[in-house]
Design a protein around this nucleic acid. Structure first.
Ligand SMILES: [Zn+2]
Ligand SMILES: [Zn+2]
Ligand SMILES: [Zn+2]
Ligand SMILES: [Zn+2]
Lengths: 145, 145
DNA sequence: CTCCGGGATGTTATATTGTTGCGCCAAGGG
DNA sequence: CCCTTGGCGCAACAATATAACATCCCGGAG
């Protein structure tokens, strides 16, 4: 396990403990898999990665993902049906994601939490913001090709 | 068929003709169903609504939706797996959507087309922006309750 | 200690959403 | 006429997600 993964995992444990949430083995394992991946991961790929150590079924991974997203440790990428570990291990609510369609890497910016107003008095409680394109690495690689 | 629906349909026809696209009967019917709905519609609900006039299969509706979204006449709502007719019958690329979680109504704002730059030189080609909350009607209804 | 209750997980089955592949046909250009 | 092209019918299937119920564990009340 690389350095940054174990760091993120212990940060997640602290964060959960402080909120009275239980970061159980399954949940921790799912989070670890997401942290180790350089790109978003699909639920059934997580499921397959869990299989070796006991035959996991879909509900197992979906429940873990549900917990982790509620805890703010993981973000769901709506347009890809995929999941990515939050880059700010402290959990922060809503995020603005930049997803490279070339290498799959995800960058993330914080978003102010809900409560904003939209047009015509619309009251926002949650936003989904996903930008697709090329990260700077892939853009320059393509330019030089 | 209400006034605004038939108006939007003819606008769509003109728009397609001008771009050399074929707004065939199936596609037109799907667009009409979306226009008539006050809330986003799911693919299989469209499918069911098409059945009466000939047994439609999934590919039929998905192909029509694909065409309509490409033509900019329909927007897919990623977080709901649902579709809504574009409120600007001219087709305009990407949109910013405000979806009321109470009544289902969708408001829409134009977005400048892609090409924007994100953080660290990220080059955006497409954005998904969906805000969930309460429209002003539902917010005031709830306040008075 | 014992019993109970809630949370987490296992297990089975099913629901929902979306795609592939093939063949037919009608329109249009040579 | 022949050939290509795009649109659609059709059958099967793949991928994503949830429902419903059983079991286990653990900590607190009695
Ligand atoms: Zn985050
Ligand atoms: Zn990249
Ligand atoms: Zn629009
Ligand atoms: Zn509303």
């Amino acid at each position: 396990m690389t350095e940054h993964v174990s760091l993120a995992l212990s940060a997640a444990e602290r964060s959960c403990r402080s909120k009275g949430l239980a970061l159980t083995p399954v949940r921790k394992r799912v989070l670890q898999l997401l942290l180790e991946s350089q790109a978003p991961v699909k639920a059934y790929d997580l499921l397959a990665a869990l299989k070796p150590g006991g035959g996991a079924q879909p509900p197992t991974v979906y429940r873990a993902l549900d917990f982790l997203t509620r805890a703010g440790l993981v973000h769901r990428i709506e347009a890809l049906n995929a999941y990515t570990a939050c880059l700010h291990a402290d959990g922060h609510g809503s995020a603005e994601l930049y997803i490279c369609e070339d290498c799959g890497q995800v960058e993330e910016r914080h978003r102010k939490i809900s409560g904003e107003a939209g047009p015509g008095g619309f009251l926002i409680s949650r936003s989904v913001i996903e930008h697709y394109g090329r990260c700077s690495d892939c853009a320059s690689a393509q330019a030089s090709a």
